[in-house]
Simulated assay, not measured.
Amino acid sequence: MSSSYATEDKDLPEACVGCALQDARATATEMLLQDLPISVWTDKTNYSHDDMIIVKGKVANVASGFPVTVTVVSPLNSIVTVDQIPVTSNGDFETMLNTTGNLWKYDGTYTIKVNYGSVAKNNSAKVELTGGIASTPDSPTSNECGVNEISANGQCIPFTISGGTVTSAIINTDDNSIIININAEDDGILTISPSEEVIKGIFMVLVDGEEWDDAEIVTNTNEVTVMFPAGAEQVEVIGTFVIPEFGTIAAMILAVAIISIIAVSARSRLSIMPRY
């Protein structure tokens, strides 16, 4: 069932994304929110590019000290913003998203994803932005990743983090590594579980460019857990192999093109040689 609801209850918004419940169902909706691991809604369904989006939600079972991670994905499947929101003792959370700025410039559907502690506790709501730049199929895109995943060179890498947020990630083909940029407000833990198609043979972890001992590498599951200090900005996981920047087919096409150029060049030289 969708995470978006509408009720007349004083503790819930009067208009929620994608629904229109009657007053008689308000109590039932409140009970349903208590049963869902996490729910999320917004104050409207449509916004312009200079509006504030009010995001509210509820967590069913509150774990003290754990925030809700909010990730906004654009119509081009790129991450617009990532933030962590505190949860009240009764499970409520709320934040405001400012739609001004270059990352919000495209028109279309923006997905607001929320996560609370584990993969199972996630949900999302969608809003429409208009009055900006039209997004087209020719616009650059990346693979759409889930709530607990970060996109790196078009690959989705599962992760969990406490004490900070993951802001971006890239695959470094020169050093056979994945570089994860983080905003560490406190001492925390980052765990990533990339597939072996992305990286394998993981043997070293760097934090802000220094070899890091407070890390656990589980080779049979390709999982890495890193304990980082407050203020850390970058975690790099190094392996013996990372997915090439160009796919196999692209590499084959490049090889064929090079061979063709060499063949044509050789034929041209032969054609201009004097004959006796």
Rank of each mutant, 00 (worst) to 15 (best):
M1N: 09
Y5T: 14
A6F: 00
K10I: 11
L12R: 06
E14L: 15
A15S: 12
A20E: 15
A24T: 12
R25K: 13
A26Y: 00
T27M: 12
T27Q: 14
P37G: 04
V40M: 05
W41K: 13
D43W: 01
K44I: 04
K44Q: 13
T45R: 11
Y47Q: 03
D50Q: 13
D51R: 13
D51N: 14
M52I: 11
I54Y: 07
G57A: 07
V62I: 12
V62W: 05
A63T: 15
F66L: 14
F66R: 10
P67D: 07
V70P: 04
T71C: 00
T71I: 08
V72M: 07
S74H: 07
S78L: 11
V82G: 01
Q84Y: 08
Q84K: 12
I85P: 10
P86D: 08
T88G: 10
T88E: 09
G91R: 05
F93S: 01
T95L: 09
L97V: 13
T99M: 04
N102Q: 02
D107N: 14
T109V: 13
T109F: 11
T109W: 09
Y110I: 05
I112D: 01
V114W: 04
V114S: 08
S118C: 04
A120H: 09
S124G: 03
A125W: 00
A125N: 01
K126D: 13
G131K: 04
A134V: 07
C145F: 04
C156L: 09
C156W: 09
P158N: 05
P158R: 04
F159R: 02
F159N: 02
T160N: 14
T167L: 11
T167P: 05
T167G: 11
I171L: 05
D174Y: 12
N176R: 05
I178N: 08
I180A: 08
I182C: 09
A184T: 03
A184F: 02
D186A: 14
D187R: 11
D187T: 15
D187F: 11
T191H: 04
I192R: 06
I192E: 07
I192Y: 02
I192F: 08
S193G: 10
V198W: 00
K200A: 12
I202Y: 04
V207G: 02
E210L: 14
W212H: 15
A215M: 06
A215Q: 10
A215Y: 03
N222P: 09
V224Q: 04
T225V: 09
T225W: 02
M227W: 12
F228R: 01
F228C: 07
F228T: 07
A230S: 15
A230G: 15
G231Q: 10
E233G: 15
Q234A: 10
V235K: 01
V235F: 01
V235S: 02
T240F: 10
F241S: 12
F241K: 10
V242D: 01
E245V: 02
G247W: 02
A255T: 13
V256P: 03
I261C: 12
I262H: 00
S265K: 01
S265T: 11
A266V: 14
L270F: 12
L270Q: 13
